[in-house]
Design a protein around this nucleic acid. Structure first.
Length: 259
DNA sequence: ATGGCTGGAGGATCCAGA
């Protein structure tokens, strides 16, 4: 079974690239972030033609998340229950049935803009709500994957220039403490279960030739629960779509689970 | 060059992203 997450920075712009990438990279489930589409504009028909089930949750201009799946998805939850939020950032669903079913949560974590901003305060509140809810989800669904654009670098290995980024958004101690708090629930950063090349990023700024110079951050993550950890056989970042014409600024992260 | 692309909204620039 293969799962992936990809912040596409507008699904209407990137749908052809998503379909092309999926044709070359067979998956069971893909979590999308920043679809930037209201629900009536979601390209369900095109995806269905390509053989994908989908569930989606979006809004105008900003945010928006979706799950694409080769198999039906059930028990869909949109956003964090009990956390009033104008912004469409979370979609969860269950794949399969019986003892091998997997709960999948796709999330677009708040950016936070700057550590002294109101948006950072919102990011902290959102992260608190997320942790409480994920803890409950884990209790109900031990086989769980939490993946998406976390907008957090877990540590300095995930930052191309840790000195310049020290204390900046994505790299503050507060954000990293929240990331560690998710791991403390019994989740594992799948990428770090394996030896990885140094300077592995999932995002590169559009400006400054950042991709060509490989100046980026690792902010897109796949966390797997204790119950799934033994089945994780690979996790990698696929840089190929970042080389496309008119690319997303994020690359997909891919997880393989053995049967 | 001290925020240098990109997408969306709207119809010129501005907001937001990370």
């Amino acid at each position: 079974m293969k799962l992936a997450t990809w912040n596409v920075n507008s699904l209407s712009v990137r749908l052809p690239q998503v379909l092309a990438w999926l044709a070359d990279n067979p998956l069971d489930v893909l979590a999308l972030q920043e679809t930037k589409l209201t629900d009536d504009k979601f390209p369900a028909a095109e995806l269905q033609t390509a053989g994908w089930h989908a569930t989606w949750f979006g809004q105008k201009t900003y945010n928006g998340v979706a799950l694409l799946s080769r198999h039906p998805l059930t028990d869909v939850v949109r956003n964090i229950p009990g956390f009033a939020d104008e912004q469409a950032r979370v979609i969860a669903a269950t794949l399969g049935e019986g003892d091998t079913r997997v709960r999948v949560i796709g999330a677009y974590f708040p950016n936070g803009q700057a550590p002294d901003s109101d948006k950072f305060t919102y990011k902290m509140a959102w992260l608190n709500a997320l942790r409480t809810w994920v803890q409950a989800e884990l209790a109900a669904h031990p086989r769980l994957v939490l993946m998406g654009d976390f907008n957090i670098t877990p540590d300095d290995r995930d930052v191309h220039d840790p000195v310049a980024w020290a204390g900046q958004i994505h790299c503050t101690p507060e954000e990293r403490t929240h990331f560690a708090g998710l791991l403390a629930l019994g989740l594992h950063d799948a990428f770090r279960l394996f030896e990885q090349a140094p300077k592995s990023w999932s995002w590169w700024d559009y400006r400054n030739l950042a991709f060509r110079k490989n100046q980026g951050l690792r902010i897109d993550h796949i966390l797997v629960s204790d119950a799934l950890r033994a089945q994780v056989s690979a996790c990698h970042i696929d840089k190929a779509p970042r080389k496309n014409e008119r690319p997303s600024d994020h690359a997909p992260v891919v997880l393989a689970l053995s049967d």
